[in-house]
Design a binder for these strands. Structure first.
Lengths: 228, 228
DNA sequence: TAAAGCTGTTACATGGGTGTCACAAAAGCA
DNA sequence: TGCTTTTGTGACACCCATGTAACAGCTTTA
């Protein structure tokens, strides 16, 4: 599956948030940041993350409430949730787990401990994540060596096409809207014309079929693109 | 590699120190003693030990400071460090781990436990750190003699190029970003311009091809560099 | 102490990747 | 069928990432 698991990091305090984000990104995770409960729920709706790190105390919708809602919906129930809290009382811990959180970290904690917990949860729920090779049919993308092959032949594609293909390979079959692709491939704060996506899809198609083979990309009119 | 691994034992209290030294020597280790942080750093500079046992509380440069310095330098980063401390508070433990210590033993401990931890760290790190010869195709790097050859001919390269090549040789094919290379080759807390990596890549390329042969380094546009 | 070697920075050339546009083609819709 | 909307794609100008020479500061060596 995904070589870059997506972590939804929900923490209202900027300093804390960025420290964790820095370490997660350094380890190769895609980090989606959220500052409060409402934003968190929105992000989950946008694109399902592979794991959620949730601060307990937040303005607005609290972490505990977010967790409760996620765990009560079938489509989000299986996403592991790690709760962060400043309170160490056993009572809180119990309540945290009762809402369905999969793990619970009490501040202060070391970054090493935090990373270990995240990896543990991901190992538990996505054993296939450990491999860094994404495949779909005869297409292989190795994110470690940055090489892409189709039916054994190496394909030459630019950085943008590479990330684009990687995005599709993470969730084969899923339809990505142009805006979602811009977010994931180009970056959240980049302003680029939507049609640029079309052009790069074209380039990716050309690259994927340069040695023959059918076009694996599907255009979903009015919605976006999908792999397979 | 030496049949007798060298242990650098840093402990200011003589009784403690001699008990540990006695047991280490009985098990066939070469023991180098140091009474404080400054002496410890000097010993490390003299000749790299295979493992370091470091007392937390010491006059002058503290154990935690010694550890931090060792872990921030590429040439000493891989030496395992075991911290000894009388404090068992969680806070201290966290701080100890954040400095990069590989293990942490809280006093009082049994000698058997101590020896077990030392053996464990050596088992973990020795195969890859001590006297290993790294190869890729016709390139050979001997970390013990600090010599590099290609197709049998000895290459002359500077310290930075040496560590750079060693980094690539540890994972041939893997793409390292410039930031990752700065972390691993220069050191985590060194601030150096990213482009410096490019220059040293160029120097390494020139060194590797000075007697002919193709350039084994691959530039991955927008991502970094890789060997092969 | 001088010489040699190494390092990090800067500046400049260059080539390839990028985004945008315009128009063609296709797909929906009435 | 005719019209509108959406998508495919060739062309092109731009500019950013990379390669590299030059240089000054620093450390090591003779």
């Amino acid at each position: 599956m995904s070589a870059r698991p997506t972590v939804l990091l929900v923490e209202d305090e900027p300093a804390q948030r960025e420290v964790l984000a820095y370490n997660l990104e350094a380890e190769g995770f895609d980090v989606v940041r959220a500052c409060d409960g409402e934003e968190a729920l929105l992000c989950v709706k946008e694109g399902l993350p592979d794991i959620i790190v949730l601060d307990w105390m937040m303005p607005g919708v609290s972490g505990i409430e977010v967790c409760r809602r996620l765990k009560s919906r079938p489509e989000t129930r299986l996403i592991p949730v790690i709760m962060l809290s400043a309170r160490s009382e056993e009572v809180d811990k119990v309540r945290g787990l009762e809402t369905g959180a999969d793990d619970y970290i009490v501040k202060p904690y070391s970054v090493a401990e935090f990373m270990a917990r995240v990896r543990k949860e991901l190992r538990r729920t996505r054993p296939s994540t450990v491999g860094e090779v994404l495949t779909y049919e005869d297409i292989e993308l190795n994110s470690e060596t940055h090489r892409v092959t189709r039916a054994g032949a190496e394909l030459k594609l630019g950085p943008t096409e590479f990330r684009l293909l990687a995005t599709f390979l993470e969730k084969p079959g899923r339809v990505f809207s142009r805006d979602q692709l811009l977010d994931r491939v180009w970056g959240r704060d980049i302003y680029v014309d939507t049609r640029t996506v079309d052009v790069h899809i074209g380039r990716l198609r050309k690259a994927l079929t340069q040695f023959g083979g059918s076009d694996p990309l599907r255009t979903v009119r009015g919605a976006g693109y999908a792999l397979g």
